[in-house]
């Protein structure tokens, strides 16, 4: 009667809890939802109600107009991620959830920085921008607006470098992500 992988004798001492664990790392969830009114509210409400903290959230269309993709990141040290995904799955409008493997995922966000840059500091700011492959999209006498794309870590690093020059404003989209290779996310 044995089935592969099932031991014939089982001691209770050997049993380990299989869920409810905290991973301690950042998780990127890619969630496909029906493109219907109120779906984002349902997700946001679920997170608020259960005390889950969203770090970033990005919503947009997919190749199928009936389906939207929500990419959200959260901290696996604060939440048991399996509980988060299981609660999300209970929402009728949620079609598919993937907890993306960091090594097999391409994640990017778009950020815009408005930085003080007068005569003295402008060259230095532009140089940092170039190193990060950012793009200057607006210039005034006293400031520049820089557009930057990259992983969350890269954007964080850029922010730290330009902050001392005087960061007037910053806007970030939050990461969106897609799996590498042919497989669907």
């Amino acid at each position: 009667m044995g089935e592969p992988g099932t031991k014939e004798v089982l001691s209770l001492d050997e049993l380990e809890a299989v869920a409810g664990l905290r991973t301690g790392r950042k998780h990127v969830l890619s969630i496909l939802v029906e493109n219907k009114p109120g779906v984002l509210t349902r997700i946001a409400g679920l997170f608020a109600r259960r005390g889950f903290n969203i770090d970033t959230l990005a919503v947009g269309p997919t190749d199928d107009e009936r389906i939207s993709r929500i990419t959200l990141t959260l901290d696996g040290a604060l939440h048991p991620i399996d509980q988060v995904t299981k609660q999300l799955h209970k929402l009728i409008n949620v079609l598919k959830i993937r907890d993306l493997e960091p090594r097999e995922t391409l994640a990017r966000e778009l950020a815009m920085f408005k930085v003080s840059a007068d005569g003295a500091s402008r060259a230095e700011v532009m140089q940092i921008c170039e190193i990060f492959r950012g793009k200057v999209v607006d210039v005034t006498k006293r400031s520049v607006v820089i557009e930057l794309t990259g992983t969350c870590d890269k954007v964080d690093a850029f922010e730290q470098l330009v902050r001392p020059f005087g960061l007037i404003e910053m806007a970030r989209t939050g990461e969106i992500a897609i799996a590498r290779g042919r497989g669907e996310t």
């Binding site: 209770l12 049993l15 380990e16 809890a17 299989v18 869920a19 409810g20 664990l21 048991p80 399996d82 509980q83 299981k86 609660q87 799955h89 209970k90």
Partner: peptide, 22 residues
């Protein structure tokens, strides 16, 4: 105790008490 947890709602499993055999 170790726990067998049988439930039709997967989100109940290990919500409050980690299950060993869900």
């Amino acid at each position: 105790a170790k726990f067998i947890h049988i439930d039709v709602d997967p989100a109940e499993i290990s919500k409050n008490v980690p299950a060993h055999i869900p």
